[in-house]
Design a protein around this nucleic acid. Structure first.
Lengths: 236, 236
DNA sequence: GGAAACAAAACGAATGGCCGTTTTGTTTGT
DNA sequence: ACAAACAAAACGGCCATTCGTTTTGTTTCC
């Protein structure tokens, strides 16, 4: 076994962790950093905090991230990438409005509190850190474009008859999403189920201002709506 | 707390700055701190930065604020108090919807950027600093109550016929306000004039879902609306 | 009225602790 | 066997706060 293999073609760098384990470590560090950053903000959170949370040493951390700045950038990229991915699924949804409502539900209810707080932290950081700003804005723009395309297709399919152009619709819906996100992050007593139906109704009048019958049709595929979002508290 | 030293007729000495100048200094420091905090965040901003911005020395600053924490609390209180005051004026407005639109216009256009960024900073801080959280939430609650009262009165006066209760209406409108605020703070390219009319229309259908004629009446006292907000660039 | 008296206000260099990062020596994976 | 991965301790800079001193403004006493 020990048989002294000196390989001829072997010279410089190679032995390492398997790239997958390497990636796993990175993710783990990011997970820990997310928690810490949300708990204390990007600032007051120390590298030592993150090390402790991740169960590693400072030396190890610096193998994977060159600096705190770099770590922050990593957090932002991962978080925003996930957001973009989840929003991309939206375009596949058959029912536009209930898909939107489900999205709101998802972000405002299922996501743990610390992720929402992290979102605020990211937005704030984007106003002063050009690096963060770049990824933040690009994802933001992508999301609004997605919305816009969805609306545009729905209109061409005759499913909606909005009086505004798709770009404006997308802006308005994004804005409502931002409001949900902010309120939910900042006010622990916020009850999304109180407002979600109203928001849906409101948006539906936007999409079909003329004919309430059509709006109703888009709004309520009755069975699905009842199951998914409207009353998840009935069971408990 | 200032002029009150008890003085036996003879010996008493209590020279000081006139309370008004004292207050002025405090305000000046708060102004400087606002700028610095917005520029760098509560964290990365140093006390020396603030001193430089205010044109005073460290020692002087600590005469007026016991600690950085204390200074942050001061900022939050002043900012929120102003918000509450401005919102209180709303109840006096004769035309509800255009008053709301004007409010949105005010916060999203006239307010300088750094104040918006400061708002994010405050919200973020409120998720972890109990002191900040207390004033933040109390003002937040006050604002929503104001909205609620305004809506309730409008309903009783027969000006609106909403199908939702005033509490819910207030939540929804607040949420839209939050969305405006966030978007405007975070996205410098955001054009509020693209969405404001749509938002107004949307809210108006909320307030008067049944009878579009009434809704139209509330929405457009035509002369006033044109002058105040809709197209301030037409005249010039 | 004006100067002495005195404390608040302001200054600004010094301090002490904290935190991001580096260095050093050991372990581990291949 | 050898470099990458890691832990642990150490370093160096920065920053909130303090403190001894100076300045400023008000009162008191002649």
């Amino acid at each position: 076994m020990i048989g002294e293999t000196f390989c001829p073609a072997r010279k410089t760098v190679m032995p390492k962790l398997k790239p997958e384990t390497q990636q796993a470590r990175r993710e783990r560090i990011l997970d820990a950093a997310e928690v810490c950053f949300a708990r204390a903000g990007f600032h007051r959170c120390t590298m030592q905090d993150i090390c402790k949370e991740a169960g590693i040493s400072a030396g190890a951390l610096y193998v994977y991230f060159a600096s705190k700045e770099d770590l922050i950038a990593g957090i932002v990229e991962r978080d925003r990438a996930k957001l973009a991915a989840e929003l991309a699924d939206l375009s596949k949804a058959p029912d536009l409005l209930s898909a939107l409502a489900r999205l709101g539900e998802h972000y405002a209810v299922e996501e743990p509190q610390y992720k929402r707080v992290l979102g605020i932290e990211i937005g704030g950081e984007s106003t002063r850190n050009p690096n963060v700003a770049a990824t933040f804005r690009s994802v933001d723009a992508y999301c609004r474009q997605s919305f816009e395309q969805v609306f545009e297709r729905a209109r061409q399919d005759g499913k909606i008859k909005p009086q505004d152009d798709s770009g404006t619709l997308s802006e308005v819906v994004s804005l409502i999403g931002d409001g949900l996100f902010w309120r939910r992050a900042v006010d622990p007593a916020f009850d999304i189920h109180k407002v979600l139906p109203v928001l849906v109704r409101m948006v539906s009048t936007l999409l079909n201002p003329i004919d309430p019958a059509v709006a109703g049709a888009v709004l309520t595929p009755p069975a699905a709506a009842a199951d998914t979002s409207e009353r998840s508290e009935a069971s408990s």
